[in-house]
Design a protein around this nucleic acid. Structure first.
Lengths: 213, 213
DNA sequence: AATTTATACAGGAAAAACACCCTTTATATA
DNA sequence: TATATAAAGGGTGTTTTTCCTGTATAAATT
């Protein structure tokens, strides 16, 4: 009997267990165990000999998120297939997961039958891509994709503080820098992010999860 | 054979179907059908004679959200029990659901066994409250709870515009008001929301979903 | 009829934010 | 070794924001 094994990583226990129940109804698949976050998966991988064929990976998780975890799996267990299972359909997030090594990306509002089909495709062909993801990949190779903006540590720290009610002077104090330096940081980010004022910074930070509510 | 019926309302199809599979494994319960949002539930309630004993209700949904839907059910079908099933553990949200008539509030990171227990409690006793919810209710009656802040239409419009990169002068234009009036709106909200500056307004608006990203 | 309450708006001052241009000092890198 | 390049920060000026106090008017209450 040819049965494939699945591990589910999601911090929402109920969803995790519900998906488990669902996957276990699929003829060819069986759930080995579930994890609440990436850290738990790393631990289980070292404790348990039996490695799964497929990992169903949520992205937004505390401690160690889906992208980091996928990178870790790709690096250490390249024969384990990771399929992302997320509510986010932001291009950048999807690309990050694919770059991290995910071989599929499903939204949480897909049908049961699609999940089964995707799992089968993955174990048979090594990947499953929806139309959306394929289009995204096409956009990506043709360069029609705004590339990810990279920040250094200080910029991130500044951006986070800019999302508080502190004045720039107070931010300078917190970062042990001259207010003039903060001026520079701000102006550079205005240009880089193409925004006019602090509200633009705040919105960017929130939308791109630099600042978490 | 004494079987209770359940309806699931959630816009994430996969979760919806997975919970369905899970609930169907509970001895005493059977899922009648699932809905993607409140509107669909209203339609199904009018089309299908058989009404469920319990509705498992997500809160964040497009078109008609969990709170509105719960209100509708409470008003029109008081014998149908609504249990909220959400990722949000904000006091205000929970209270809104309870006020709307929900007889239980479970977070999505609870255990399968808790869900079953909650369902049994609800059909047997009419409610199921976790420790968190009970504590919240206690806080509520003792008045140790910051009450919900109410805004009028113009304040909401202003608050939304304050979340954009427009200056107050530009906001005044959009609202066909004098910049000085906008000054007044702003200052009143600063006091009301207890914030120092525009970032405070923006953060409040986002956290309380006055402004949607 | 008198009083409160809400709404719109004015003037003015001080603080903060924004814009631009320029210098120094490391650290790479061609 | 000459030359970028990145990071910190000074100078100056304008605009915007923030914080006051105060007025007028209409609607709602007492």
């Amino acid at each position: 009997m040819n049965e494939f094994t699945v591990v589910i990583v999601d911090d929402h226990t109920l969803l995790s267990q519900a998906i488990q129940a669902m996957v276990n109804t699929f003829e060819k698949f069986r759930v080995l165990y579930t994890c609440k976050n990436g850290e738990e998966l790393v631990r289980k991988f070292s404790e348990i000999e039996n490695r799964p064929n497929v990992v169903l990976m949520d992205i937004n998780m505390p401690i160690m998120n889906g992208i980091e975890t996928t990178e870790w799996i790709s690096k250490n267990y390249s024969n384990v297939n990771v399929m992302a299972l997320s509510v986010e359909d932001e291009d950048i997030t999807i690309l990050k997961m694919l770059k991290a090594g995910a071989v599929g990306y499903l939204l949480k509002d897909t049908e049961k039958s699609i999940l089964e089909k995707a799992l089968i495709e993955i174990v048979e062909n090594g990947f499953y891509h929806t139309k959306n993801v394929t289009n995204l990949l096409m956009k990506s190779i043709s360069g029609n994709l705004e590339e990810e903006i990279i920040f250094n540590d200080r910029q991130i720290k500044f951006l986070k503080l800019a999302c508080t009610e502190l004045t720039y002077k107070e931010i300078a104090d917190r970062m042990n820098l001259s207010p003039k330096t903060i001026d520079g940081y701000r102006d550079a980010l205005f240009t880089k992010l193409n925004v006019r004022n602090r509200v633009g910074l705040v919105m960017y930070a929130i939308k791109n999860k630099v600042y978490t509510l």
